[in-house]
Write a protein that binds this DNA or RNA. Sequence first.
DNA 1: AAGGTCTATTAACATAGATCAATGATCGCC
DNA 2: GGCGATCATTGATCTATGTTAATAGACCTT
Lengths: 190, 190
Amino acid sequence: MNSESEFIEFIKTITDLPAEQEDKFRALISVKNINKGEHFVRAGRNSKTIAFVKKGLFRYYYTSEDGVEFTKGFFDVNSVLSAYDAILENSPAHYSIEALEDAIIEAVDYYKFRQLFSEDPCWNNFLVALLQKGYLAKVRREREFLLMNAEQRYHSFLERYPDLEKRVKQHIIASYIGITPESLSRIRKK
Amino acid sequence: MNSESEFIEFIKTITDLPAEQEDKFRALISVKNINKGEHFVRAGRNSKTIAFVKKGLFRYYYTSEDGVEFTKGFFDVNSVLSAYDAILENSPAHYSIEALEDAIIEAVDYYKFRQLFSEDPCWNNFLVALLQKGYLAKVRREREFLLMNAEQRYHSFLERYPDLEKRVKQHIIASYIGITPESLSRIRKK
DNA sequence: AAGGTCTATTAACATAGATCAATGATCGCC
DNA sequence: GGCGATCATTGATCTATGTTAATAGACCTT
């Protein structure tokens, strides 16, 4: 009997997964704990792993030259993590991925995963679905930066991530919205 | 003898294209002229066409509630145009796509194109490549909005689109950077 | 070439959000 | 349960960019 994999369950919600491919994929998975404050990816390092979040919460963030952090996004349970652009370009990641809560992930080496691609079209289907989701999220975010002021972006954050306001510190939310913690404090007072 | 298609040549630079698929795809293409100022996609309308730019220059732009335009991006010769998020969601486009110069495109109905997908994996390869490119562009742009001020974003624009400064009006460049034409004028004076 | 319509520049003022600094509130830890 | 460290709030300024408005230049069109 095989061990359970939530990653595989997740993939099955997106595409048909032949039993053979399922087994091959399962062999690539290793389960890892990441404690709050630890990193899955660090800016400046090459990365070659993708992972599925079984438990916990992550954020992606940039660090500017003068050390200020800017949060790109939040990834809760049932998300796929990766420094995908860095993997594709085989270059150091521009950003870091940090656990905001104690987490458990299922990690897979991208290059080993990539080898499955030519064996069955299900993987391309899966990748297309992931990319489309990521693309839609970025398009939405771009629209927000172009069209909205800080207060509107805060409300958009609340709508999109209704439970994160309690789970995430103010200064991290502020860095997601693109303002200072002081400004966010003032906006919230209203 | 078949007519030339730059769209097909472009696809061949990305993936192997079996002769049978090439013929089927060619049958879907219709060549169209779009004059400067005319639209390929209009915000608020459903769209179901993708197109390849043979000649000319396009921009994607949002229009805010109070009628102000914000340019998402520029698409020169050898680019693929589509309101892809709107097509995926089968919903009205949030943005418009306008010709900034007299243009010639090769247009293809997305749903007819989509029917080819199950016939050969080359189409998924092609789609993954397009999505990755789009995704990388959005990631870069998000980073710029989070980390850079207006002047830095202007210089980033100049690096990325070296020849567009001459071809595109100031107020459109300003709307891409996310500032007013007046502010851009001041930045350029330096 | 004159007139009209876009487009770009410039200046004066307004404002959102940043910065700096001080004070309070929370939270983990011995 | 107290103490230091982190985090949030608040107030006083500062600055980048927006707004408004006026002018000047560019580009058509007849």
